[in-house]
Design a protein around this nucleic acid. Structure first.
Lengths: 202, 202
DNA sequence: TGAATTATGTAATGGGCGCTACAGATTGAG
DNA sequence: CTCAATCTGTAGCGCCCATTACATAATTCA
């Protein structure tokens, strides 16, 4: 076993994966062709297939890469912050920054890159929808913890709030793709936070 | 001149346009093929081209039809209601109903059917983005009227509010396509309305 | 030095796409 | 009844797509 016997890979896998991530992020699953990827990366189809598998598998690798990098802020916000309010506040504020970063495509890849259009991408859009639903459920769970701890009123509708903030994030991604600025997205975030069940401390 | 000289059209144009609208609404511009449309309507490509022009022109006819029918509620809400609060309230509540109506695809066609994926649909997605921007500007104008009339505080950020509600509508459409129910969308609407600058009368 | 193994580049495959040429069908005008 | 005009169905066009067969280059093991 040990290390590589035959010819060595001529390209940097992570670098190529990053470039491909940008392509899928900008143009979506169906809108990105293998020809696009080879012309962007300089890597020919057989090498891409050997390294990542077919287009579907390649896209899932891209999603995993995206979740570890550009999209990691949501998991970090919900995981690191002590309260639901702090977590959601941080999540929305960082979304405003990331979704409008000039260094990469606008918005969120998981929200916009596959939405169930063509039959061949339906499996992929189902997976993306599941990821979005999981994010929404994570928000709901974070709120419920605070309700149970007495930090939020007993009658707080955790599910309703989670759906609301999930919609706000989805809307921020859409607005960013439509050309909204970071400042505009931050305004959306601050406005949305006004609905919080208890007064927000200054 | 007067009426038709040769063979008469064998299909009901409005009925076919409605069916095609549903197809584009469900599967998007790139995800809907001419073969799909012929199999759904029973009308063959040459007849479609004679009646509507090429795929691009057909889609624009679909958008016009959508705006006159399923999507008319936004224009009606902003045009008929006397105040910005009433207009936006009605718009969001009707969006919750329309976006989850089981009689047609979920969400909003103008928000979801063309988002700038493939090069051949970039002109179309540009047009859709312009329609979305026009809607956002209409909300902003409606708010400004109330600010000028003294119904809202002088310092009210009309643009910020408009961007926020545009994002909420966009998010509601996305949530609907992800499977959210009418009740969940209504919850989003009621929650969003809590951010209104002055207390909402019961 | 060979032989086995892995990666690469070229070029092709079958399939679906938007679109249309063409012949036949249907209608009104004369 | 004939002709011109319009619509319809069949069948195909060229193009782009994801995917891969094949020969060749690079590398390790014996």
């Amino acid at each position: 076993m040990a290390v590589s016997r035959g010819r060595r890979r001529q390209f940097d896998t992570e670098r190529v994966l990053d470039t491909i991530t940008h392509a899928f992020w900008r143009s979506g699953y169906d809108g990105t062709s293998l020809a696009d990827l080879t012309s962007l990366t300089g890597v020919n189809p057989p090498s891409l297939y050997a390294a990542f598998g077919d287009k579907r598998a390649l896209f899932f690798e891209v999603v995993a890469f995206y979740q570890k990098t550009y999209g990691a802020f949501t998991v970090h916000a919900l995981g690191d912050e002590p309260t639901a309010l702090l977590a959601i506040t941080r999540m929305l504020r960082e979304a405003a920054v990331v979704y409008t970063d000039p260094g990469h495509p606008k918005g969120c890849l998981i929200i916009s890159a596959a939405n169930g259009w063509t039959p061949q991408s339906s499996e992929i859009s189902d997976a993306m929808r599941d990821l979005r639903t999981a994010g929404r459920d994570a928000i709901e769970a974070k709120i419920k913890v605070d309700v149970d701890a007495g930090l939020l009123p007993t009658g707080t509708d955790a599910h309703g709030l989670a759906v609301f903030f999930a919609a706000v994030v989805q809307g921020m991604s859409g607005q960013a793709r439509d050309g909204a600025t970071r400042e505009e997205l931050e305004r959306i975030a601050e406005t949305a936070l006004k609905v919080w069940p208890v007064p927000v401390a200054a």
